[in-house]
Design a binder for these strands. Structure first.
Lengths: 242, 242
DNA sequence: CGCCTTCTTGATGCGGTTCAAGTAAAGTGG
DNA sequence: CCACTTTACTTGAACCGCATCAAGAAGGCG
C-alpha cells in the first residue's frame, strides 16, 4: 500500500505543500487501496457506505438518475478528487459514483473526518475547499446545460476536461490526453441525446478543432475551440491534496 | 443587532441544538446586519468580497451568467443558508448572489472561518455540512435541467420550494407560502424561456394543481404534483444553523 | 400621466429528440 | 476457432418540444 508521502499526486504543479506531520497523519488514516474495473459502481445512489475515499488513479463520475432510467452526470472525477464525502455528511449518498476506467481508491476510516476536524483544522479546511471546488465544477455544468447550445456545451466540455486532464499530469508526448468517456457519457453529462452528441462532435472534427478516437483527445485549435464555447480562461486555483 | 441566542431561526423544527458556549462564540463573531432591497446584487460574479454572511430574513439566489447575458440560476437561498463561503475559500466568487425580496444578512468577520476551524471543530463540521447541503440542491437542479421535461421541471421546482419554504416556517394559515420568484426567475432556474415557463405554469393552474398569484404559492394537490414530477419524498436531513 | 416590468397569448420555425437501420470492434461461450 | 452477442458509433428521416418574435393587457411607480 502506497504511503501518502510517496503519493505521485504530490508532484503535480498545482498542489499545495503539507508538513511532514500532516502527511504522516494522513498516511496513518489510510486503510486500504481498492481497485475497481471500468464501469463498476463505486457508490450506489442512496447507499449508506460510510467510508470516504480519494481517487488515486483513473477516472470516475458522479451522477443522479430518474426512476425511468434517464441519467444526468454531475461531474467528472480525476485523481486527487475526494469521493463519498457527501455520503459521510448526509446519511445516504445523494448521488452515485461510477468508474470510467480502471480505478484505484484510497480508503480512509469512517470517523476520520471527525478526527480530522478535531485535530487538524488546516486539513479540515482543505477538505472543505476540495468539496467547494467540486461544487464549482458542477455549477459550471449547470450553466452549460441550462443556457448553452449543444455546440457551445460540447466545446466547453472539451476545453475544460482537456485542461483538467493536462494539469493532472496526463498529457502525452503527442499533446493528446486520455479521454475515457463514451459519447453516451458525454450525452448524459451535457443533457443531450447520444445521437445529437455524435453529430455535434463530428462537426467539431470536420472543422479540425478536435480529434477524439480510441480514448485519446487531441485539440487541434484551442483558441478556436474556446471561441466556440464563448469561454475565456480563468486562473486555476492552487488546490490542497488530502 | 440581534444576538444569535435569540435568532428566530433556532426555533425551526429541523435545526440541531447548540451549546450555550457555541452560541455565545458565534454571536461574538457577528459584526453587523446588512439590509438589502429586492433585486440588489449581494455578491457580484467574480467579486472578491471576503466577508461571509448568513441569510437571516428574505429570499435570494445564486447565479452564473454568460457574456451575452444569458443567465442560469443555480439555486434559491432561504433563511439559514450561508452566503459567500465559496468566495472566502476561492479567491474570487465563482457566482453572483442576488436578493429576491428584502433581505437581512448577518455579516461575519473575514477570518472567522479560520478561527472556526481552529477552535470549534464541531461548528466547522456543521459549516461543511451546510456547504455540502447547498451543493446537493444544485445537483437536483442539474438533474432537472438536464433530464426532465419542462413540465416535470416545473412540478419538481414547486414541490421542492413549497417544502423548503414550509419547513423554514413560512407557511401561512391558508396553507400557502410566499413565492417571490417572477416567471423570469423560474425560467432562468429551469433553463427555459420565459414564454414557455408561462405556458407550463398555466397548464398546472388549469389542472388545479397549483395557484400562484401575488407572490403566494398554494398547492392544490400535492400528491398529483409529485406524480407529474415523478418524484417521491426523501426524508429531510436535520441541519445545523451556524 | 407615461413608463417600466410582469404576465399573457398567438404564430412560426429551429434545435434537438426519437425511431430505425447499419457498421465495426470487442468480448463470450460452445 | 467460429457463431453469437454486446457495446460503441454512425447516418438518415420524421417529428415535436421548446425558443423566438411580436403584440397586447395589467399593474406598480416616479
Amino acid at each position: 500500500m502506497l504511503p501518502c508521502q510517496a503519493c505521485p499526486l504530490r508532484a503535480l504543479s498545482d498542489m499545495r505543500e503539507f508538513t511532514p506531520e500532516q502527511l504522516a497523519w494522513i498516511s496513518r488514516q489510510k486503510r486500504a487501496e481498492y481497485p475497481h474495473a471500468a464501469g463498476d459502481t463505486i457508490i450506489a445512489e442512496g447507499a449508506t457506505d460510510e467510508r470516504i475515499y480519494t481517487l488515486l488513479r483513473g477516472w470516475a463520475f458522479r451522477y443522479k438518475s430518474l426512476p425511468d432510467g434517464r441519467r444526468q452526470i454531475l461531474n467528472v472525477l480525476l485523481p486527487g478528487d475526494v469521493v463519498g464525502l457527501q455520503a459521510e455528511l448526509m446519511s445516504a449518498s445523494p448521488h452515485g459514483v461510477e468508474a470510467l476506467t480502471e480505478v484505484t481508491l484510497c480508503a480512509f476510516r469512517r470517523d476520520m473526518v471527525w478526527e480530522l476536524f478535531r485535530d487538524h483544522p488546516s486539513l479540515a479546511l482543505d477538505l472543505t475547499w476540495l468539496s467547494a471546488h467540486g461544487e464549482r465544477l458542477t455549477d459550471d455544468v449547470l450553466l452549460s446545460v441550462g443556457r448553452r447550445s449543444a455546440m457551445e456545451r460540447m466545446a466547453m466540455l472539451l476545453v475544460l476536461l482537456y485542461r483538467r486532464a493536462a494539469s493532472s499530469g496526463l498529457k502525452r508526448p503527442d499533446g493528446g490526453v486520455p479521454f475515457p468517456l463514451t459519447q453516451g457519457h458525454i450525452a448524459d453529462l451535457l443533457g443531450l441525446s447520444a445521437v445529437h452528441t455524435n453529430r455535434v462532435l463530428q462537426q467539431l472534427r470536420r472543422q479540425g478543432l478536435v480529434s477524439l478516437k480510441e480514448g485519446v483527445l487531441t485539440v487541434g485549435d484551442l483558441r478556436a475551440l474556446r471561441r466556440v464555447a464563448d469561454y475565456w480562461e480563468q486562473p486555476a486555483p492552487r488546490r490542497p491534496l488530502l
